[in-house]
């Protein structure tokens, strides 16, 4: 497993303020596959991506990408490392002062000395791949949510990275653009041989494309396996999440006094 995995997360701890976000997370993300990291909202899935991308430093444990400890790299080496990574942000994070074309060209201009004509070809190729070649002159404010995310995807793969991190790619999308995105992620993965990490809590879509799934909750990995094996997982917490049941080990109610006491007790007081 180690030989074929691109990213290794070992015994990762992370605290923010007084809250423990992660208490010993171990992940191994295989090369060339789509790995999903799932979990309820507020379990720090986005934080995990930021830890992998080296934007946050863990309080203990380490993250290895291709054998390099991300948090031990110098600033320069880290920026070099990030060249090999693409990240798709939840909001798309397109630069609002640049056109669609310039957004996709941005990583190319930063990291390469390609002549303008070559930049143009590459950008149009990437935009064609996400079906937005015709939208190249629009500004980000003129795009719909789904288009924004597709442009962001084109930008994330502009440099042909080895690893691409998707932060909640399906949130807030209508069914059509959701389907488009699912298909795009799968196609890009196969066509470019990418290693993909998808962080999401949209179970159906994520399970349909993932090769391997980690379920993260309460600061640790609660379950992992292939989508098929998770579907029949016996652990009640995992099955509640995977099947989307409203009540179970993760309670519907925020912790409170007994309902009966709360209502009647007030009158007595």
């Amino acid at each position: 497993m180690t030989a074929s995995s691109l990213v290794e997360v070992e015994n990762l701890h992370f605290t923010r303020g007084d809250r423990d976000i992660f208490r010993g997370v171990d992940l191994s993300i295989p090369r060339g596959k789509i790995t999903a990291i799932m979990g309820p909202s507020g379990t720090g899935k986005t934080t995990l991506l930021k830890l992998i991308g080296g934007q946050l430093a863990p309080s203990a444990g380490r993250v290895l990408i291709d054998g390099h400890d991300v948090h031990r790299l110098s600033r320069k080496d880290l920026f070099q490392m990030r060249r090999r990574m693409g990240m798709l942000f939840q909001s798309g994070a397109l630069f609002s002062d640049l056109s669609v074309f310039e957004n996709v060209a941005f990583p190319l201009r930063v990291h390469t000395d390609l002549p303008e004509s070559m930049v143009r070809d590459v950008v149009l190729m990437k935009l064609e791949a996400v079906g937005l070649r015709g939208a190249r002159d629009l500004m980000p404010s003129e795009l719909s949510g789904g288009m924004t995310r597709r442009v962001a995807l084109a930008r994330a793969v502009a440099l042909d990275p080895e690893l691409i991190l998707y932060d909640e790619p399906f949130v807030g999308q209508d069914p059509i653009s959701m389907g488009v995105l699912v298909q795009l992620i799968r196609r890009l993965n196969q066509a470019l041989g990418l290693t993909s990490v998808v962080v999401s809590h949209d179970i159906k879509e994520t399970l349909s494309i993932a090769d391997y799934v980690y379920v993260v909750a309460d600061g640790r990995v609660m379950a992992h396996g292939t989508p098929a094996s998770l579907d029949v997982e016996q652990d009640p917490r995992v099955s509640q999440f995977v099947h989307g049941e409203p009540d179970g080990p993760v309670p519907f109610h925020y912790p409170a006094n007994d309902f009966y006491d709360d209502i009647l007790g007030q009158e007595e007081a």
């Binding site: 934007q55 070099q80 990030r82 942000f89 798309g92 994070a93 609002s96 990583p107 990291h111 962001a152």
Partner: peptide, 17 residues
């Protein structure tokens, strides 16, 4: 602030700028 809120700053950093 808006750039920060819409993750433009973070994404720029991820691109390596």
């Amino acid at each position: 602030g808006l750039m920060k809120a819409t993750e433009q700053l973070t994404s720029m950093e991820m691109i390596g700028v």
